[in-house]
Simulated scan of single mutants.
Amino acid sequence: MGAGIVGLAVARQLLIDRPGEEVTVVDKESAVAVHQTGHNSGVIHAGIYYTPGSLKAELCRRGRDLLTDFCIEHKVPISAVGKLVVALNPDDQRRLAEIHRRAQANGVNEAVMMDGPGLREIEPHVAGIAALHSPATSIVDFAQVSRALAADITARGGTIRLGSEVTGFRQDSEGVVAETSTGDLRATTSIVCGGLQSARLAEMVGADSDPRIVPFRGEYYQLSEAAASKVRGLVYPVPDPRYPFLGIHLTRRIGGTVDIGPNAVLALALQGYRRRDISGRDLKSILGWPGFWAMARQNWKMGAAEITGSLSKHYFASQARRYLPDLSASDLHPWPSGVRAQAIRRNGELVDDFWITHEQRITIVRNAPSPAATSALAIAEHICAEVFRQGNNR
């Protein structure tokens, strides 16, 4: 279920592992990669940030290699532009040392520390006193990757059923029935990769309501051509451990443009890409979740700053100017937003790692945050192995 990059990768892996099996992808949209996959930063992450031993760390490295090979095989353009994680002050620099340690623990041995003059050899217009350089970090158009996955699925005998919304599930001794807007679909097993809709689909299955998805809109600007010429690759801040979101950064796209963003503001609908997008049903679900209020109490200062950036282009520009001093507000042009599906526990804890659960014959991806797009092919291997193991144990 789900024609985002994770759902498509899982369907393809099922066909690789079990050639000749009947595999159907179901999605309510009229095209693949409409939501998170089609609205992300396009970065193929190297795996420098993630806690060593976590599923994120394990699957990111494997996923990067699989994705690179897939793109080469299917002629999807990919570019190793590299990433600089930039320290602006001594506190940043100390945290950067820990990120470097994680990178080495995760096997990203090509990531190197450099001082201010060194980082300016990579990015001449970027300010900072130190940086971690990840030359293996690449960029790609994940929507194009998803279309290539969809084509591979159909070439292997699979079916992609678009414009078909899942409205419920039934399980019996013979398997699973997915009730959809275009008729029931029976299967021996179902794998739910619902992204923004994952918590709602999990509740249809009868799974625990914890965690719940809370949507955060990430707003972007695109740099003017003159400003974009001053950014060669990816320029990221050092993550602040006090806050759950990374903060705005500079991202070169596969087409040569450069984005600035995203911030993170509460969306008032699961698909709330614009400020005016409001869903009473979704808002009731968000505000009725105790975890949302616990999270809000813990992070209200960050939330206030994010809202300020949302309302003021000048503030947004001032945050980016810390890294690109020549930038002015006139260099920023509005660009479409994305929505992040943030899983939040009942106690307010933000779920940081991939989270996959099983409800009899239904497997549910409850949380697939960044680097899910990078890791999609490895996530698919992991899920399929678990599904086959579950099936053998029934």
Score class of each variant (00 low, 15 high):
3 A>V: 03
12 R>K: 12
12 R>P: 06
19 P>M: 02
23 V>T: 04
26 V>T: 00
29 E>P: 02
30 S>L: 07
40 N>F: 01
52 P>V: 02
52 P>F: 03
53 G>W: 11
56 K>R: 14
60 C>S: 08
64 R>A: 07
78 I>K: 09
81 V>C: 11
86 V>F: 02
87 A>V: 04
88 L>D: 03
92 D>E: 00
96 L>H: 01
102 R>E: 06
102 R>H: 10
107 G>T: 08
109 N>E: 13
112 V>D: 03
113 M>G: 12
121 E>P: 00
121 E>A: 10
126 V>S: 09
127 A>E: 12
128 G>W: 00
138 S>C: 10
148 A>I: 04
153 I>W: 00
156 R>C: 07
172 D>Q: 08
172 D>K: 11
174 E>S: 15
175 G>R: 05
187 A>K: 05
188 T>L: 12
191 I>P: 03
195 G>Y: 04
201 L>I: 13
205 V>E: 12
205 V>M: 10
212 R>W: 08
223 L>W: 00
224 S>L: 06
224 S>D: 04
225 E>P: 03
226 A>S: 13
234 L>G: 07
239 P>K: 04
241 P>V: 11
244 P>Q: 07
246 L>H: 09
250 L>V: 02
259 D>P: 04
264 A>H: 08
264 A>S: 07
264 A>C: 08
266 L>M: 14
268 L>W: 09
278 I>S: 06
283 L>W: 13
287 L>T: 05
289 W>F: 06
292 F>I: 12
295 M>I: 09
296 A>N: 09
307 I>F: 13
310 S>N: 15
313 K>T: 15
320 A>I: 07
321 R>H: 03
323 Y>V: 03
330 S>M: 12
330 S>G: 13
336 P>V: 15
340 R>M: 10
340 R>K: 08
344 I>W: 06
345 R>K: 14
347 N>P: 13
350 L>I: 15
355 W>C: 13
368 A>R: 05
372 A>D: 02
375 S>C: 02
378 A>T: 00
378 A>K: 00
379 I>M: 10
382 H>V: 08
387 V>P: 04
390 Q>N: 14
